[in-house]
Amino acid sequence: MDDKDEDLGAFDPNIPEEGPSAPPPGWLDDVHGYQGHKGGEDDNPLYPPPPAYNPQPELNRNTLVPNVRVPTVSEDVARDALLKFVESKWRYSSKPARNLTFKELKPITVYRYRLETYTETRTSAWQFEPYNGQVVDGPQYGVSPPPWDIPVSLPQRYTDMVEKVRVPHSSFVKLCHKCNGCGRTRCNNCHGRGQKRCTFCHGHGRSRNKRCTSCHGRGRKRISPPPSPRCTSCHGHGYKTCSVCHGSQNLLHFIQLTVTWKNDVADFIPDRQPDFPDKKFEKVTGDPFFIDESVLVYPIQGFPDHEICDVSTKMINEHLNRFGSTSRILQQRQTIELVPLTHAYYTYNGKDYSFFVYGMENKVFAAKYPSACTIL
């Protein structure tokens, strides 16, 4: 007997097979200003229009650099910082930190340049939800406004945030693409039969010339009492409620605008201390003695450390090229910080050692420490 000839349960041809979970290409129409949305779920970038005015950096402006005094660390502060560092290392003994003798506390000038570019990016994509009689804000109420004309409330400046907005007048109702408006889809597990062939005897009722103990010989034939095993996926119904429209048969489609505010930060510290890892600076703060803020900032000029000037020019150009076409630049801010760094030299038990105290938080980096505690 051919497996395809005799099926289990009542087959309902009116219940369709499952369609795609997303609307297929061509299922949705274009909306003016939001072209390119052919039913895909991915967000489409919406490039901002050119601004009404073209902001220009201030030209011929030299940075006025105040007199900056390199902060010094006293022996008491350096010792306390080392003791806190030792407490965080369970293998270290605090005895060397308490009894060491300082030889020199050498302050080091460290500048950190930081550029912040605060941008707004807008993307859009078709979304849908089951239609259960809710209000439909469709084209009958007007034309959808251009994506960059839709008003949104600005967050606090330099704060990352995402807001999703339903585009006005972009909604309409359409039959569910997954179930073709039936509200149900055929069970893929039993192919709409409600029952499954026995997997042990393959529907023959016998295995190895013996009555199948799994289906008790019922196999796949219609007999009474109960026929072949009920499908556990659809509980014997042969169909499932549509997972997209949840049985409502219709979907409300609309364009969702995603507005993303992001503060992109770039830092730079000249690498001039071979014994100190620069990555340590990422977790500490400095003293921002120079702050420049505008819609677009101009590269720093006239600063004594020429490497800072060069990096300022490079980073500003990189940010303009990266964000200028795909996002709207709302504000830029550049700062120069003086990050405290002191190299502490000391002796203990006749040997020379050293450690660094860095950041406004007085963190400690010690590549080598005199002794570890002895576990008895």
Score class of each variant (00 low, 15 high):
P151R: 12
H253E: 02
Y345C: 11
K221R: 15
G238T: 12
Q195H: 08
S214G: 08
F303K: 04
R222C: 02
R98H: 09
G40R: 05
R112L: 10
I223W: 06
K103R: 15
S93V: 10
A10S: 11
G205C: 09
D5A: 05
I316F: 04
Y353L: 08
H319M: 06
P23F: 01
I255L: 13
V284K: 06
E18I: 01
T119A: 15
N189E: 11
K240Y: 01
G286W: 03
V136W: 07
P50A: 11
A367I: 03
N209I: 12
T232P: 02
S124G: 13
L320C: 05
E307A: 06
L105P: 06
Y111F: 09
Q301P: 03
R206T: 12
F323K: 10
I255S: 11
V110G: 00
T109G: 02
Y34E: 10
P51V: 00
S224R: 07
F281W: 13
R69S: 05
K4W: 01
Y113N: 05
A366E: 14
H246Q: 14
T258Q: 15
R206V: 14
R122M: 13
F172Q: 11
W261K: 03
F289N: 02
I375W: 10
S94P: 15
C309F: 00
S93L: 02
R333M: 09
E58P: 00
V136M: 03
P66R: 03
R157F: 08
V167Y: 09
R98K: 10
I255F: 01
A372F: 00
F281G: 14
S144L: 01
V311G: 02
A366F: 02
Y353T: 11
P96G: 10
M315L: 09
A22P: 00
P288T: 01
H204R: 05
V77G: 00
D310M: 03
D264P: 04
S21M: 06
E116H: 12
Q127N: 08
D7M: 12
P155F: 04
P147L: 15
